[in-house]
Simulated scan of single mutants.
Amino acid sequence: MAKQRTKNTVIAEFKALHQQEMEARQQLLEKQLELQSKLAELDSNLADHQAASVTDISEKALSEEASIRLQIAETDGMLTTINEKLARLAFTEETAVLRKEALELAKSEALEKYDQELPVLLEKIAEAKKAYLGLLADYHALKKESRQSVIDIAQKVGRSVDNVDLPNVREIKTYRMTNMQSCGARANSAGERRFEDWRRWQRSYSQTRG
């Protein structure tokens, strides 16, 4: 039974193949520069030979010119071959297949890990939610108790209770993320500040009238 391939195996194969391609590309670029230099020299030699043998129709002169032309054609053909090979090296089918395989394996492994770990996290989330709701209930009970203790005393001494008499407990607005958080952090929005100013004015006004 063949060993199952992993993304790390495929990545290692891709890197090895990519290294081979880079080395081949470097060698081709060096050969390309060499042939370009040779082609320029052959073109110069052909021009010099043609200028020097305008009236020379001997077999030797014709043969020399034909030889230079053949070298030019051969060198130009080699350059064309190198350019085409460089283009193929830039986008080889084998590396493209390995790239796709690596991504598919990474996607599969990530999904498998997610499915394995999600149930445990969901249980922890449910436990945290239950604990949060319990603490939220405790908070409301504490808030109610702090007010009720004042109301109880007021009833014992025969006095009605106004809002100003109740303790100004710290409010925690758990339903607005941009406002007071369950951690007790207070937002500094303009609306919140205006509301606090209004509450201070109301308390001050009630006290002056009392």
Rank of each mutant, 00 (worst) to 15 (best):
A24E: 10
R200K: 10
V10C: 05
Q36M: 04
A61S: 06
T6E: 03
L142T: 14
E93Q: 08
K15I: 13
A190M: 04
L98P: 00
S149Q: 08
D43N: 15
E109C: 00
L111R: 08
R194E: 11
S189M: 03
Q207H: 11
Q148K: 15
L70M: 13
T92P: 04
L136Q: 08
L86C: 02
T6C: 06
L142D: 15
W198H: 10
R209K: 04
M22V: 10
R200W: 11
A185D: 05
Q181A: 11
T95K: 00
Q36V: 07
K173L: 02
R170M: 10
V157L: 00
R193E: 14
D43G: 05
L121D: 09
A66T: 09
R5T: 11
R186N: 10
N8Q: 11
N188Q: 01
A61I: 01
E41D: 07
L62A: 00
E145S: 05
E123Y: 08
E59V: 05
M177Q: 12
S63T: 08
A128Y: 09
H18I: 05
G210A: 02
L133K: 04
Q71L: 12
Q181P: 01
N188S: 03
G184E: 03
L122R: 11
T208N: 06
L28W: 06
A52W: 09
T55E: 05
E74T: 11
I82L: 00
N8D: 13
A185H: 14
S204F: 12
D138F: 12
I151R: 14
I57N: 15
E21L: 13
E84P: 01
A96S: 06
S146F: 08
K60Q: 07
S53K: 10
K107W: 07
E171Y: 13
Y114S: 01
E93K: 07
R25H: 09
E41R: 06
L111E: 15
K113M: 02
R194H: 08
A106Q: 07
V97I: 05
E30G: 10
A131M: 13
R209C: 01
R176M: 10
A141E: 08
Y139K: 00
L135Q: 12
C183R: 09
L103S: 15
E74P: 02
Q20I: 06
S53E: 09
A66R: 06
N45R: 06
F195G: 05
S37T: 15
L118M: 06
K130E: 11
M177G: 14
R199C: 05
T55A: 09
I72F: 00
S149Y: 13
A12W: 09
L122H: 11
R209W: 09
V120R: 08
T75K: 00
D76N: 08
K100C: 05
G158R: 03
K124W: 14
R203F: 14
F91H: 15
S108A: 14
A185Y: 15
I11A: 02
R25T: 13
G184C: 04
E145T: 04
S67T: 11
S53V: 07
L46W: 06
A16I: 04
R194C: 12
E104P: 02
S53L: 03
L70N: 12
P119F: 01
A12V: 00
A90Q: 13
L98D: 01
L135A: 09
S53R: 06
N8E: 13
R193L: 13
A102Q: 03
N188K: 04
E21R: 14
S146T: 10
L62H: 05
V54A: 09
